[in-house]
């Protein structure tokens, strides 16, 4: 009985410490960027930023719903054709952070729309596969996405300079030649 109690205390203390680490800052994005429209909220987590941006741009958690992030994080050994495995503690921390700030948990308008564009029984791994994305980019040709200066549709930063901060506003778009 006593052993069991100690274990409970232990687990609680580890997970609460983890949550503290994971939650990080949760501020307002840009001027009046809270809530409707505008920039997605500024979110920070040291491990998320370090791990997820070592191979590709840092995708804001508000770009996919929790169910998608869970699927991404559960398949890191085959992450879009590459092994991106993490130690269990880091993986758990980042998964929690992504879930907490995911598109379906956010009141940001763009995040809500992304979330709503996904069928209830679907959990896409690629942001570019969401109906929201394809509708928003229907005037951009496949050839444009393939330009050397862009590479592919997953390289948000090529045209949306503030992408890593969750800023996808129309006025900030500049499509490189």
């Amino acid at each position: 009985m006593k052993n069991w109690m100690q274990f409970l205390v232990l687990v609680t203390s580890i997970s609460s410490a983890g949550t503290l680490l994971a939650s990080g800052g949760f501020g307002e994005g840009g001027e009046g960027g809270e809530g409707r429209g505008k920039q997605m909220p500024t979110v920070t987590n040291v491990k998320w930023a370090a791990e997820c941006a070592s191979c590709h741009m840092l995708y804001h958690p508000g770009l996919l719903p929790e169910k998608s992030w869970n699927k991404v994080m559960a398949g890191l050994d085959k992450h879009f054709g590459e092994n991106a495995s993490l130690d269990a503690a880091t993986q758990a921390e980042i998964t929690r952070f992504l879930a907490l700030n995911s598109a379906d948990k956010s009141d940001n308008r763009r995040s809500s729309r992304i979330s709503q564009s996904i069928a209830t029984n679907a959990a896409p791994l690629r942001i570019t596969e969401t109906r929201y994305f394809t509708a928003k980019h229907d005037e951009v040709s496949a050839a444009t996405f393939k330009r050397k200066s862009i590479g592919s549709a997953s390289n948000c930063m090529a045209c949306h300079k503030g992408a890593e901060k969750g800023d996808f506003s129309e006025s900030q778009i500049k499509i490189p030649r």
Binding site: N3, I14, A89
Partner: peptide, 16 residues
């Protein structure tokens, strides 16, 4: 055993 567990927990927190 509690001390030991706590040490393990501390170790987990700082191991990364």
């Amino acid at each position: 055993s509690f001390v030991k567990h706590s040490l393990v927990a501390l170790g987990l927190l700082f191991s990364t």
